[in-house]
Design a protein around this nucleic acid. Structure first.
Length: 521
RNA sequence: GGUCUGUUCGUCUAGGGGUUAGGACACCAGAUUUUCAUUCUGGUAACACGGGUUCGAUUCCCGUACAGACUACCA
């Protein structure tokens, strides 16, 4: 039996409460593919329960703000098919949704914590903090943190006389730290991992308000989740260690009854070795890590996205959904609609998932094959820049799409549909371009000239009779014929290729091949 | 180092006290195909280790190992 992850009251609680989830990235660069998955799981839960998906921008670190990142996040989610019900760009009842614009809001909650002796002012310099850590380390202390073992040795409103404290506060340079109580077992009931218990001695007196007046993630996230009536916090596993701190904050703020449920997602790991998926790892393996192409405004460096690489959003989403979750059936192809119906937090895995780009390619191929010829034909006409009839475009696409992983490969590998070969595959020439081939192809060309037009059937019939007339099997010269027409040793159905090319073009190319390719002695 | 989390084929995973441990990707082989691809069929391949509990453990418990995350006035 699976371990019990939901207690009965929890189930009751969840069904009684409107599902409101949020995706809360910080605009410090391009959205990582793992972030897309986190957003996806949030979205799936929201849609399944007819709830709301909220996008909140966590830009409390002004130093790390990257221009364009927010727009990038919006565009990436839109491309992925993840729709935002409330948040930046769409607004909503809890606006603003950008934390920097909510700055004033957090102060009162920090003040409440101070008033109730659950937080305090601290004035230590960076150097003093460093000294403290070193001292604790030298003394053999296991955790070198600003907390119950060290706070009374530091420069803060707990240790300084009231008048000096006031002076320092008035000077404006201070932080507010949480006063973590001693000897408590803090429990987080994680929907994926079960009950996680941490001793409060392991939690340090985290900074809640920074000296620039901005809240840290911990405060802002708890305040906003409460104010925005978030029902489920679904986020990456890297947040699990700080979840007890957040529980403490909810408790001190008097919001424990309304605290959201937590679900900490397993990490996305790099394909080889260990460690979490990074841009560096992706670069090494030669696959994208961002949904859309991203140009770093600081360095000018460009990172190609999944979209630009040729991934279809539906395929990427399907693939991503299965990294850490599965429906428990043998169905693998899931549309967004299917995912919304089938998704459940209970079936999310605990262990990290390695990012297997080959599986992503397989999904892409499945979705490409399922895409209608008409849609792909329009794309082909647009992207190839060639003037071809829609009829022919549909034919090209229908024989090419089975063979490729990405749509662009249809025209990359089908160049010969538009231009006569500039050269011929050497390997095929040396093996297959012999007297027999020349005999049959010459006979074939002559027979073709007498036809008024060709389609794949007549092309084949004519070829067979031409080959029979010189007593040579068709099979022996097929590759030579292909190379004469396309320049390549392999490709889609040759008869259909000839139909698309038309009689004139085919005979022209055969002539050309007959004239230029020499039979090896 | 400390805290937390995790560990089923190479990868994503199903399963769960007695199973031939299932599927998918990848890989290999065969069939089909004029070639390559597709498609079809088949195959190789896994319960990290050690102790318990039990008639029986891959499944439950405890350890160990390994891995990861966190350990900022970053999120």
């Amino acid at each position: 039996m699976r371990p019990e992850r939901l207690t009965l009251p929890n189930i009751f609680f969840r069904t009684m409460r409107d599902v409101r989830v949020r995706f809360a990235p910080s605009p410090t660069g391009a959205l990582h593919i793992g972030g897309v998955r986190t957003a996806l799981y949030n979205y799936l839960l929201a849609r399944q329960h007819k709830g709301k998906m909220i996008l909140r921008i966590e830009d409390t670190d002004q130093g790390r703000y990257v221009p364009g990142a927010e727009e990038y996040i919006l565009e990436s989610l839109a491309w992925s098919g993840i729709k935002i019900d409330e948040g930046v760009s769409v607004g909503g009842p809890h606006a603003p949704y950008r934390q920097s614009e909510r700055k004033e809001l957090y102060k009162q909650y920090a003040q409440k914590l101070i008033d109730e002796d659950n937080a305090y002012y601290a004035f230590d310099t960076e150097a003093e903090l460093e000294t403290m850590r070193e001292k604790l380390k030298a003394a053999g202390n296991d955790n070198q943190q600003y907390g119950m073992h060290s706070r009374m040795d530091m420069k803060n409103s707990l240790t300084l006389p009231a008048d000096e404290t006031k002076k320092l506060i008035d000077s404006g340079s201070y932080v507010i730290r949480l006063k973590v109580p001693a000897g408590q077992q803090i429990q987080v009931n994680d929907l994926i991992r079960g009950l996680v218990t941490v001793d409060s001695s392991q939690i340090d007196d985290k900074v809640l308000m920074k000296s620039d007046g901005m809240p840290t993630y911990h405060l802002a996230n708890v305040v906003d989740d409460y104010l925005m009536k978030i029902s489920h916090v679904i986020r990456g596993e890297e947040w699990l260690p700080s979840a007890p701190l957040h529980v403490l904050l909810y408790r001190f703020l008097g919001w424990e009854q309304d605290m959201p449920q937590f679900a900490h997602l397993p990490l996305l790991l790099k394909p080889d070795g260990n460690g979490k998926l990074s841009k560096r790892a992706a670069d090494q393996m030669g696959f994208p890590i961002f949904p859309l192409t991203w140009k770093d405004p600081a360095t000018g460096e460009v990172a190609k996205g999944f979209k630009e690489t040729g991934y279809l959003p539906e395929a990427l989403i399907n693939f991503l959904a299965f990294l850490g979750w599965n429906p428990g059936t043998e169905q693998e192809i899931f549309s967004m609609e299917d995912l919304i119906n089938a998704f459940s937090l209970e079936r999310i895995n605990k262990a990290g998932a390695k990012f297997d780009i080959q599986k992503a390619q397989w999904f892409n191929q499945q979705y490409l094959k399922a895409t209608s010829n008409e849609i792909l034909a329009d794309q082909l006409i647009r992207e190839s820049g060639q003037s071809i009839s829609r009829d022919n475009a549909v034919k090209i696409v229908s024989i090419m799409k089975e063979r490729v992983t990405f749509p662009r490969e249809i025209w990359e590998q089908g160049k010969f549909f538009f231009t006569a070969p500039m050269g011929y595959d050497e390997g095929v020439i040396s093996k297959k371009w012999n007297d027999e081939a020349v005999t049959v192809i010459t006979a074939y060309k002559n027979a073709l000239t007498k036809e008024s037009a060709i389609d794949s059937t007549s092309a084949k019939n004519v070829l067979e009779s031409a080959a029979a007339s010189v007593n040579i099997g068709v099979g022996k010269i097929m590759q030579a014929l292909r190379v004469a027409i396309t320049g390549n040793g392999s490709g889609p159905d040759l008869m259909m290729t000839m139909e698309i090319l038309g009689k004139e073009e085919v005979t022209k190319r055969l002539d050309n091949a007959l004239n230029t390719i020499k039979v090896k002695a």
